[in-house]
Amino acid sequence: MSETTTLRAGLIGLGMMGRHHARNLRALDGVELVAAADPGGDPHGAAPDLEVLADVEALIGAGIDYAVVAVPTQFHRDVALALAEAGVHTLVEKPLAFDIGEAEEIADAFEQAGLVGAVGYVERYNPALQEMRRRIAEGQLGEIYQIATRRQGGFPARISDVGVVKDLATHDLDLTAWVAQSRYARVGATATRRSGRVDEDMVSITGALADGTITSHLVNWLSPFKERVTVVTGEKGALVGDTLNADLTFHANADAATNLWESMASFRGVSEGDSITYALQRQEPLATEHQAFRDAVLGEGTNIVTMREGLHTVRTVEAVLESTREGHVVTLP
C-alpha cells in the first residue's frame, strides 16, 4: 500500500458495470482512481481523463494499492491471479470465477498472499437486505423456516457469456446463505431455454441450508415486468425485502380471533398480526460496497463478501446447473 493517506485504485473493465464502478471510485473519500484498463477502450466515457491501458500488467505498472475487476467472467481467473501475484488487494465482480477450479485458485492465491480479496455481490449492500440481515441477527423472526426469492425481468442485451443462473441466480444464492448465515446443503433445479440462446433463461430452484432452512428461487429473463423480492419466514413472522425500491416490511405472527367471521379465517390464515414498513436510508448499494472494500483494505472493517464465500456460491451455482442437467437433487460438500 502507498504511504500516503489516499489509496490508489485501478479499474479493469470499462463496460456496462465498469462505468458504474468508475463513477463510484471517483466519488469515494480517501481513494483516487489513477488507472483504468480495457482492451476494448472506453465505450461509455467512464474514464475520460485517464489513458485506457491495454491489460492487467499495465494496470499493475501504474502503481495501485487495490483493483476492481469488471471484465467478463471467463477472464476473472487470469486477471485476479496476476493481481494477487503483484500484491494488489482486489474486488472481483460476481461471480468469482467461471467454475469451481478457477474460484479455488483465486481464493487460495489471495489468502496465501495475505491480501484483501472480495467479490462484488452488490445486492448484499441493498439497504433493505442490510437491515433485514441485522434484524434477523437480533432475533426479530426467531427461528428461520424459509427464504424465498423472486428475480424476474427482461433479457439484458449485455449478457452473452453465461445463462441466467450464473448472471442472476448467483445473487440469490449468495444473499440467502448470507442472510441466514448458513451454507447450502442441497439444491434441486429445473431450467429451460425459450429465447433461442445457448444458455438457460429461466430457472426454478429449491433447496435447503445446512441449518435446515428451506429455500426457493424463481429467476428468469422472460418476464414482462421487473421483480426483486426476498421473503424470510420465521417463527415470529416474516420480513419482505423489495430491493428494487429498497423497502423492508415486517409482518408479525400474532393470535387474531376470527371467530366472529369464520369465513375470514379460511383465507386470512390462522395467525395475523401487525405489519410495518421501515424507513431506511437509501444509499446506492454500489457506493456502500465500495466503502466497505476501502475500509477492509485499510483494516477498518469486515463488511465484504470474502472470496471464500464467493467460492461457496460458485459451488452452489455449479450444483444448480448439475441438477438442471441430470434431473436430481445435488448434495453439496
Rank of each mutant, 00 (worst) to 15 (best):
T4N: 06
L11V: 05
I12W: 05
G15N: 08
H20C: 04
H20G: 03
R26H: 12
V31W: 10
E32F: 01
L33Y: 00
V34T: 02
V34H: 01
G41P: 03
G41T: 08
P43Q: 09
D49I: 01
L50W: 00
E51M: 09
E51C: 03
I60S: 02
G61E: 12
V69P: 00
A70S: 14
V71T: 15
P72E: 15
A82K: 06
E85S: 07
H89N: 15
V92L: 02
K94T: 11
P95L: 11
A109I: 06
E111N: 05
G120S: 07
E123H: 03
R124Q: 11
Y125H: 10
Q130F: 02
R134L: 13
R135N: 11
I136H: 06
A137K: 10
Y145Q: 05
Q146V: 05
G154E: 15
A157N: 00
R158L: 14
R158M: 14
D161P: 04
K166G: 12
A169T: 12
H171L: 08
D172Y: 11
A177C: 02
A180K: 03
A180Y: 00
R183I: 02
R186C: 04
A191T: 09
R194F: 09
S195L: 13
G196Q: 00
G196E: 04
V198E: 14
A210V: 02
A210Q: 04
S216I: 03
V219Q: 04
N220S: 08
W221M: 11
W221N: 11
S223Y: 10
K226R: 15
E227M: 07
V229Y: 09
T233D: 12
T233M: 12
E235D: 10
G237A: 10
L239C: 08
L239I: 01
G241C: 14
T243K: 05
D247F: 08
T249W: 09
H251Y: 13
A256W: 07
A256G: 03
W261F: 15
W261M: 15
W261Y: 14
S263Q: 11
M264N: 10
V270N: 10
D274W: 06
A279V: 14
L280E: 13
L280V: 11
L280W: 13
E284K: 00
Q291R: 09
R294L: 02
A296G: 07
G299I: 01
G299K: 05
E300A: 12
E300R: 06
T302E: 15
H312A: 15
V314N: 12
A319M: 09
S323C: 07
E326Q: 14
L332R: 00
